[in-house]
Simulated assay, not measured.
Amino acid sequence: MDDTTVRAAGCVLWRRSPRDGGLEICLVHRPRYGDWSHPKGKLKRGEDALAGALREVAEETGQRAEPGAELPTLRYPVAGRPKEVRYWAAEAAGGRFVPGDEVDRVLWLSPDAARERLTQPRDRDLVDALTRSLEHP
């Protein structure tokens, strides 16, 4: 990875449904891009990737998160520069969402509904990676 690579991190945030105990995944809506994605963001200079991922979850969803397995890293170009986003599975551990300029809505969805709602196809593979990590810890 060279100096032009944009480094970011995030989580596939999950919980057990308060209604039926089924798996739910948190997606965030970013009005700037009009998209639905997993909580993620750029790392601060010198910031550890996992610490940055948990910080982004807290900032974007209001949730504290308990990190689990590392999930696949996504790599793709953005504005002509390479971007690398490291992801972890993370269980929601409480908190309260407050809408803001960066994220104005969150949804808790079943894995199938989350796959459908995600804007970027590359993010759908992370849902599958999360479900596999929870089945085989």
Rank of each mutant, 00 (worst) to 15 (best):
P137G: 10
A89F: 02
L13W: 01
E59A: 14
R81S: 10
D35T: 12
S110C: 09
D104V: 03
E135H: 07
A69H: 11
R7H: 12
E24M: 12
R32I: 13
V106R: 08
A65K: 12
G34V: 07
E116T: 15
P82I: 04
D2E: 05
A51M: 02
R115S: 09
K83G: 05
D104G: 14
E66I: 13
E102V: 06
G41K: 00
E56R: 12
E102N: 04
T5C: 09
R96M: 08
G94R: 06
D125F: 02
A90V: 02
C11D: 06
T61M: 09
F97D: 08
D20H: 09
G52N: 10
L43W: 07
E47R: 10
D3A: 15
P39H: 01
L23M: 08
V12Y: 10
W88A: 00
G62F: 09
P99F: 03
R55M: 11
D104P: 00
P137T: 08
A8I: 02
R132P: 01
V6H: 07
A58T: 07
P121D: 15
G100A: 11
S110I: 11
L130R: 10
S133N: 00
R105E: 13
R16V: 02
S110W: 08
R7E: 13
V103L: 06
L109R: 10
A92P: 02
M1G: 15
L74R: 06
R132K: 09
R122Q: 04
S37A: 13
L54H: 01
K40H: 09
T61C: 09
A93I: 02
D112C: 07
A93G: 00
D3F: 14
A113L: 14
V106E: 06
R81V: 13
D128Y: 04
L23R: 02
A89Y: 02
V106T: 15
P121Y: 07
Q120Y: 15
P39L: 06
G46N: 10
T119Q: 02
T61K: 08
G62E: 01
P39D: 02
E47Q: 13
P31G: 12
A69N: 05
E66R: 15
V106F: 03
G62M: 12
W14E: 03
D125P: 00
R7S: 05
A93N: 00
V85E: 15
D128W: 05
Y33K: 13
D128R: 14
Y33A: 12
A53K: 07
A129E: 06
P111Y: 00
Y87D: 01
C11K: 03
K44G: 07
V28K: 00
D35E: 10
R124L: 06
R81Q: 11
W88H: 05
D2C: 01
Y33R: 15
P18R: 10
T131R: 14
D112R: 15
V12S: 13
T119H: 10
K42A: 13
K40F: 03
